[in-house]
């Protein structure tokens, strides 16, 4: 009975370690981070006034990163260098893009995250949210991967629009 309990204990540790390893090291990192877990943003010219499905997508994406990960806060500041915007690219399957500037020292100076309003699927709120969440993931420092993650380019954007366990682990590893 005692031997069984010991074996069970060892088995649990081994199984737990395997699970831990799988979930901890599957994310990919960009190799840079933002200076702090609290950062400002401003709206770009196409999202500055009024409301839109893309603006809502960005607002929900910021809330989800704040609530589900160690990321602390995105806060509005009209003088911020970080910009959230949309652009209209026709004849393109692009959903979004992120550009992070001054990354050579491992800390990005600022970023620009944009969602393509010319993509015919972007009118679906979950798709807009999924794209905005993905782009902010890049801004914070996580890279593409091929597992169950918001950073997987092959994800179903109508279903997967929240940071997943791997994304949460990725942000925790950076900050």
């Amino acid at each position: 009975m005692k031997r069984y309990a010991v074996l069970k204990g060892i088995g649990t540790i081994v199984f737990g370690s395997v699970l831990f390893c799988n979930s901890s090291f599957a994310y990919e990192l960009e190799g840079y981070k933002m200076p702090a877990t609290s950062t400002s943003y401003k709206w770009g010219s196409n999202l500055d006034s009024g409301s839109s499905v893309i603006k809502t997508g960005f607002i929900d994406a910021m809330t989800n990163w704040e609530n589900k990960t160690v990321w602390n806060d995105f806060f509005y500041n009209s003088n911020s260098l970080n910009t959230l915007n949309s652009w209209y690219e026709v004849s393109s399957s692009y959903y979004g893009r992120n550009t992070s500037y001054g990354v050579s020292d491992g800390v990005a100076d600022y970023f620009k995250s944009e969602v393509n309003s010319g993509n015919s699927n972007i009118t679906k709120i979950n798709v807009a949210k999924s794209t905005a969440t993905h782009e902010l993931g890049h801004a914070m420092g996580i890279d593409h991967n091929d597992i169950n993650s918001i950073m997987n380019s092959a994800r179903n954007r109508e279903v997967l629009y929240m940071p997943q366990t791997d994304d949460i682990n990725g942000i925790a590893a950076i900050y």
Binding site: Y95, S100, V103
Partner: peptide, 14 residues
Amino acid sequence: TIHVLASADYPVTE
């Protein structure tokens, strides 16, 4: 040197 990293989200399949 000014280093910029560009990433994009587009549908991909294998």
